[in-house]
């Protein structure tokens, strides 16, 4: 750093002008506001078409969406509610088995079994997590990590739902287009839905609990009930992802409780930047394809992957999205002290 100078950050003129709702006076300002959102929505909606020639990468896109959903759930619980949840794989497993059961025993088609499994699964997960809600920080984290471990052992020991073989012959999607667009649109809808919720009054109450739970109690609000609602929303995303996977793999089994579903979403949130949900999605968009591209390294893949992750986190600890957002809305200059 140069001596006698410091870096100053200033909002770009266009940012200031387009902040006020009434100030939009030119296409340029409207475009400035809409560009990031358009890029995201357009990108997701066009991706299945663009990847038409690469069926393998179409599958990767699905995995991106699955991890985006899980990362959103993690980000929501960690940065809005203040609960660090390591139970992403529990949500996936419950949703997966739920959809398989609904499909095989109730004969529901994927369009019904997926949302229904997400709803019922989220209610089930919320109920099971209810006793842990007074816990905080690392205590809550470690308990949520236990749930998927317990679930696998219980399924194994009692040979439930096909035991170690899992449940086969779950119905698949009618055709790949439906398969792709169902998930892509659902991911976008859930992302914007959850962002909307965060700025509604309920969202403020949830944020209040993270800021200062005693004050929320002194405001006459039952914080356990609010936290349970927040868990329900997060579990809904995770169970939705799991239910969808069950129909894509046409199978539900123990590997749905795999640790990957708990850990990679956390990495995605950290790399992309927490606190906005968008960052979590960006992280998934970057990390999942990266992990695929590194398959060429064979056994060293995880080493290279971890190195890249470490470098990104050390250099841009605030998260990529927060960094990009700052560049988009502010410029920097050196000023004399």
């Amino acid at each position: 750093m140069k001596t006698g100078k410091r870096r100053e950050r200033i909002d770009r003129g266009i940012k200031v002008r387009s902040d006020g709702l009434y100030a939009l006076s030119s296409w340029r300002e409207i475009a400035y506001l809409l560009a990031p959102r358009t890029l995201l929505i357009g990108g997701f909606l066009l991706a299945p078409l663009l990847l038409l020639l690469f069926p393998y990468w179409q599958k990767v896109l699905l995995i991106v969406c699955i991890y985006a959903l899980l990362a959103m759930a993690f980000d929501f619980l960690a940065n809005y509610v203040g609960l660090v949840c390591l139970g992403g794989s529990f949500f996936v497993g419950v949703g997966g088995y739920g959809a398989a059961l609904l499909n095989k025993y109730c004969g529901l088609a994927p369009f019904l079994s997926i949302p229904l499994a997400a709803l019922l699964g989220a209610a089930f997960c919320t109920l099971l997590l209810l006793p842990c809600l007074p816990l905080r920080g690392v205590y809550f984290a470690i308990i949520t990590l236990m749930y998927p471990l317990m679930a696998t052992r219980i399924i194994e020991a009692f040979e439930l739902f096909g035991g170690t073989n899992g449940m086969m012959d779950v119905a698949g999607f009618a055709n790949p287009w439906i398969e792709q667009y169902f998930l892509v649109t659902a991911t976008l809808l859930l992302l914007f839905g959850l962002r909307r919720l965060a700025v509604e009054d309920l969202g403020l109450v949830i944020k209040g609990i993270k800021d200062n739970d005693q004050s929320v109690r002194a405001s006459g609000i039952n914080i356990t009930f609010i936290k349970a609602q927040a868990i329900f929303y997060a579990a809904f995303l995770g169970c939705f992802a799991g239910a969808y996977l069950a129909h894509v793999y046409m199978w539900a089994g123990l590997s749905m409780f795999a640790l990957d579903f708990s850990i990679i979403p956390i990495a995605a949130t950290v790399v992309g930047g927490g606190g906005s949900l968008m960052g979590a999605v960006l992280g998934a968009v970057l990390l999942v394809p990266l992990s695929e591209a590194l398959r060429a390294f064979g056994p060293l893949r995880i080493v290279v992957y971890s190195l890249i992750l470490t470098v990104v986190i050390v250099i841009k600890g605030e998260g990529l999205l927060n960094y990009l957002a700052r560049k988009y809305s502010q410029f920097e200059r050196w000023v004399e002290i």
Binding site: D201, L202, L204, V205, G208, S215, V216, S219, G220, I221
Partner: peptide, 9 residues
């Protein structure tokens, strides 16, 4: 907004 969201308010 948080107290106003309470059942009492």
């Amino acid at each position: 907004i948080i107290p106003l969201y309470s059942p009492r308010a």
